[in-house]
Nucleic acid binder design. Sequence first.
RNA 1: UCCUCCUUAGCUCAGUUGGUUAGAGCAUUUGACUGUUAAUCAAAGGGUCGCUGGUUCAAGUCCAGCAGGGGGAGCCA
Length: 511
Amino acid sequence: MRIEKFQYISELKNYVGQQVELKGWVSTKRDSKGLVFIVLRDGSGFAQCVIDINKAGEAVFEETKRLTLESSLSLTGNVVQDEKQIGGYEVQVATLQVISIASEYPIAKKEHGIDFLIENRHLWLRSKKQWAIMRVRNKIIFAIHSYFQKNNFLQLDAPIFTGNAVEGTTTLFETDFFSKPAYLSQSGQLYGEALAMAHGKIYTFGPTFRAEKSKTRRHLSEFWMIEPEMAFYDLDMNMELIEDFIKNVVNDVMADCKEELEVLERDLTYLQNAVTKKFPRIHYDDAVKIIRGEKDVDGKNSIKTLEDDVADLKTKKTLLEKEITERETKINSGALKQGEINFNRNKIDTIKNEIKELDEKLTNIPQWLASAKKFEWGGDLGASDETILTRLFDCPVMVYNWPAQVKAFYMKRDPKDERYVKGVDVLAPEGYGEIVGGAEREDNLDFLIERIKHEGLPMEVFEWYLDLRRFGSVPHAGFGLGLERIVMWITGIQHIREAIPFPRFYGRLEP
RNA sequence: UCCUCCUUAGCUCAGUUGGUUAGAGCAUUUGACUGUUAAUCAAAGGGUCGCUGGUUCAAGUCCAGCAGGGGGAGCCA
């Protein structure tokens, strides 16, 4: 049922040559003597609306001139096709009604620092790029649900309050649960296993909490995780499912979010590869050799590639520095108009920021290289090791069979070699790193008890979990997908904080 | 917790070896101009230079401590 009597910008294509009524906010505004150009946004999209004093009349024109950025209004007008415009359509305004005049809007077109933007997150969400990211996030969520629903999974949720840590490694948020200490869930995994024993194939989709004081661009204190769990699945089936699942999600986004990806200026090559190419499956031992530079991939050596990257970055930096000098000479020559001087100053500002980014990389990469060269078998891959490894591939890669000592107690040990557990991590390309962690679960009661003891975890809180092995234990497997991580990779953004509407991380509780 | 960088106008930044009344662009306001798409012109308002203490005739600039922030490590999705 259609409730609104007005139209949305996304529907303009159906109304060419006709009158529409739009309601929205002023995104940008440019004045002329007898003309005002407004880019209106209404949530569904952006469209330029032109107020011509000769067509709309003086009263409407005067009203229009009062409008400030982000003022709200409704208008009626005729839709014309105009290839030059965003979205391809323009509205020639006949009548206009101001709903509310906005105060001075803090977010300008000029670049802002991340801290200022996060401080104004409630407003930042209105800008075009953020609008696109949130729409992609929505599509990813929908694609996840539709994939699992189509494949006969049930969505069933795990509790958020829990009595104890699942893995015993990470710091948890402690809360008060009727005078008893309780922790905010860091994973629904164990509950997922119980649900899989009841329903065969299930997935949980909920918030998870980690109290680590992380200050990186890929960590949040509160994030959303999708955790499927399947009875009668082994590691190979798990990996097959993960790959098919990711391919479907990426494919859905590429099909339905063309405009958003364009707004984000996303390079689609790697996303397309993720749909069409088979994900390489790399044994942990091989991953170690590749990271150390002892084994090449398609003739490419990890250490050498990174060293080449450093050289490239240095060249880029010199070029940018040269550009700054050139622009400064131009400005000082006195031959430029005021406007051109401003333009060049702005450019210099942005170039300086780019150089800062390059400098950060240039200080980090040598450290990463040093740690990669002395990487020892048995360790977990650090974020930098993931970057080094994925740098050699052009689609997501799966690293499987991990040393037992670095993985959680519930992972099934490999019967062929007990040093390993049947875990798998999926690493996204382009430096994004781990987006999925999964495993076949330990289904042997005695082994499981032994592992819990070995980790020094309190046995009593796992009694219900052990029941799953006492009453009809079966091979089963599952994985966890970090929603914001995959949003980050698909949209190509540099900060996980932009991948969620209101990010929560160390030091940030508002807005 | 550790390493590293940063904190000057509403925003993004400059401020030279310490030296009179602290600068620019954007944004805002006023006026002129203009089918515009981050490059028109002119003028105006706007700052106890993160906080505390020290060195000095003199501190935005040097030193120490504290606070806040960016990036990275660890931990992980």
